[in-house]
């Protein structure tokens, strides 16, 4: 299974922009927001947590349809399905590879983008923590959506439609965590909820994703 992770990461690096593309998209979103809402620092500071989370969400969404599509087209998925690794392991590794190439760079780069949006000084810590905890859930849920739509020719739009509603709880608690951190309020509830959701998603959703892949290969 580690071999699969290594292969996917290697492919992401070789394909060029595997890491950078989502990040560039994130930057564009953050750049466009002030054009839309005006350059006033206080407004930007207020909406920064939400904008940063939305940007992360969309950047993550961008690369979802590639999680299984390439392996499906070149026959690798068939071969993986007959290989001695459980499909649950395959989808988990796929989600992990997606997180390392998309989620992790966002976590690292988010503080820089926070500066652009005048994010409160005390919120940076919580920005990184909330993205670090929340983005794995985005990748795993995205993998589920990708698994549902893998056989479909024009699954990209449908994939967004299926996956984005599943992101709502993570978005709510993730952004709220930063907001409360910025105001110096207690962050315990959103933090616990975010951890709980991510843990539950990682533990349970791969089974659903694997089932969906098996159905789609049939």
């Amino acid at each position: 299974m580690i071999a699969l992770l290594i292969r996917d990461l290697r492919l992401a690096v070789r394909a060029g922009g595997g890491f950078g593309l989502g990040l560039a998209f994130f930057l564009i979103v953050v750049t466009l927001v002030p054009f839309g809402v005006g350059p006033q620092g206080d407004i930007l500071a207020r909406i920064a947590p939400g904008v940063l989370w939305l940007g992360a969400l969309l950047a993550c969404l961008l690369s979802l349809d590639r999680i299984f599509a390439l392996d499906f087209e070149d026959g690798s998925l068939d071969l993986l399905a007959t290989a001695p690794i459980p499909m649950e392991g395959v989808v988990t590794m796929k989600a992990l590879a997606h997180w390392v190439t998309t989620g992790l760079p966002l976590v690292v780069a988010a503080p820089v983008f926070g500066v652009l949006l005048h994010l409160d000084m005390q919120a940076y810590r919580w920005l990184v923590i909330s993205l670090l905890i929340g983005t794995p859930a985005l990748s795993v849920l995205g993998t589920f959506g990708a698994a549902l739509t893998v056989g479909l020719k024009r699954g990209g739009l449908l994939l967004s439609l299926l996956v984005l509603p599943l992101y709502i709880p993570t978005l709510i608690f993730g952004a709220e965590l930063i907001r409360r951190g910025a105001q110096g309020m207690s962050v315990q509830t959103p933090l616990m909820m975010l951890v709980g959701i991510t843990a539950a998603v990682i533990a349970l959703v791969p089974f659903a994703s694997a089932a969906a892949i098996r159905v789609n290969l049939r």
């Binding site: 292969r7 070789r14 026959g75 068939d78 071969l79």
Partner: peptide
């Protein structure tokens, strides 16, 4: 775990070298 399947599509990654492609499958199969 007795069947090895090979179809029209070889499941090769064009970005990877011959060794890398084959090593991946070797690792997958033990």
């Amino acid at each position: 775990d007795s069947i090895a399947y090979a179809a029209h599509a070889d499941g090769l990654k064009s970005m990877l070298s011959v060794v890398e492609n084959l090593s991946f499958w070797a690792a997958t199969y033990g």
